[in-house]
């Protein structure tokens, strides 16, 4: 309800940007407060207000905030890196996962080697003693 009181006083960032009247059931108002004008500007530049509105209507109300945040993140990423956008970050993280998993496999192999080595030593020590 705090967001409602916000946009009764002043239009939301979206309506301000689009220079239109911010109606009471404005779909953007709860997620684009007037204090964050760049959030909507970025999203509008990359995806367009119409597409964002369509996406928000397709999503359940309790998930809209997450959807807006992810869209804002993607838009900002695309503006910073027009070629790869947020997909570049995914690629880097994916490579990091692969590298870590390879490292883990190698370390596990080392561990097995040590374990078998220590087990063998123990066995040989006692076996030799018994023999």
């Amino acid at each position: 309800m705090s967001s409602y009181s916000n946009y009764t006083n002043s239009p939301c960032a979206a309506c301000k940007f689009l220079r239109r009247k911010c109606i009471s059931d404005c779909v953007f108002a709860p997620y684009f407060p007037p204090e964050e004008p760049t959030k909507f500007a970025n999203v509008h530049r990359i995806f367009g207000a119409s597409n964002v509105s369509k996406i928000l209507h397709e999503v359940a109300p309790h998930q809209r905030e997450d959807a807006v945040n992810s869209l804002a993140y993607e838009a900002e990423a695309r503006l910073k890196d027009p070629v790869y956008g947020c997909v570049g970050a995914i690629s880097v993280l994916q490579r990091q996962v692969l590298r870590l998993q390879r490292e883990l496999e190698e370390t596990n192999a080392d561990l097995m080697r040590y374990a078998s080595c220590l087990g063998g030593e123990t066995m040989s020590a006692y076996g030799g003693r018994r023999g």
Binding site: N69, S70, E74, C86
Partner: peptide, 15 residues
Amino acid sequence: PVHGCLGVTQNLQYL
């Protein structure tokens, strides 16, 4: 539709 690429990023960070 909700999380998009941000969800993928979070999953990868979790991994």
